[in-house]
Nucleic acid binder design. Structure first.
Ligand SMILES: [Mn+2]
Ligand SMILES: [Mn+2]
Ligand SMILES: [Zn+2]
Ligand SMILES: [Zn+2]
Lengths: 138, 138
DNA sequence: TGGTAAATGCAAGTGAGTTGCAAATGTGGT
DNA sequence: ACCACATTTGCAACTCACTTGCATTTACCA
């Protein structure tokens, strides 16, 4: 059973600041992973002025606590989505317009075990993204 | 049946330059994906002076022709490996020392079809990397 | 309500990757 | 072997995501 966001912060010795609440709110209302600039723009739109560097620092911290997930499509920047209350999953991005869709699946449970046996690594994560062309850009 | 490197270059209207040959040679002698800086260092070591920007431009071009594969572990830089004569595969990287190992497998053939049906995207690629701790760093 | 560690904003810095342009070089035809 | 010419290269300047240092502010707890 998963800790609440507030309890996770407390357990990590973190304060529940105005900036933090606002950043989490922006992420919660976005179904898909968004860039740091998009988080920042969301804050400005919500009349919450938070410096860009504060967004960077908070996203890094939230990621360390496991509350936020970083996703990269090799666009030259990372994207972030909330983990809390959502199932582990992956994404596909259109090479034309950049659109992203959630893929509510993960085929890697069994394979992870196999890799651990074959490589003697202990595997603790993976990144899986698909690329292609959406119906509009096809 | 796969075109030779020279034929692929020719087909793309590309010249077989000294820099190009040397870059491919560096990549060929490395089993694992290496950074642009590492390619460049390899050139210097081989007494072939090629500007860093030339390395960037050639790797981008070779990737477009499908001769080279870009791999990213979200380290803040990309890595490159030759495709020619090697089977499609994936990688695992140690979170401690950064060591990379080839995983000669890909579990995504069937899943790709399923995703195409479900999303109406045409899928033309994917990125899959595993992360963990190697025996030394465990 | 005050003491204190954590968090924030601002300014400056880092580093991967890109761009513009003049000079150099590989290629295909003669 | 030579020429014409498109491609490629090197250099310098630039962009932009992200980080760091430090003085000030803020959330938390006794
Ligand atoms: Mn998602
Ligand atoms: Mn490989
Ligand atoms: Zn699209
Ligand atoms: Zn290791």
């Amino acid at each position: 059973m998963e800790l609440s966001i507030i309890d996770s912060l407390k357990a990590g010795g973190k304060k529940l600041t105005k900036a933090r609440k606002a950043i989490l709110a922006v992420l919660e209302k976005n179904a898909l992973p968004i860039t740091v600039a998009e988080v920042h723009a969301g804050l400005v739109k919500a009349r919450t002025n938070v410096d860009l560097v504060t967004v960077y620092r908070n996203l890094a911290m939230l990621q360390e606590l496991g509350l936020v997930n970083a996703v990269g499509f090799h666009e030259g920047q990372m994207r972030y989505e909330v983990v809390h209350g959502r199932a582990h999953h992956h994404h596909i991005q259109c090479r034309g317009c950049g659109k992203i869709i959630d893929l509510m699946l993960c085929p890697l449970k069994k394979l992870t075990k196999l890799i651990e046996e074959q490589t003697r690594f202990s595997v603790d994560g993976h990144a899986l993204e698909f690329f292609g062309w959406c119906p509009q850009c096809r």
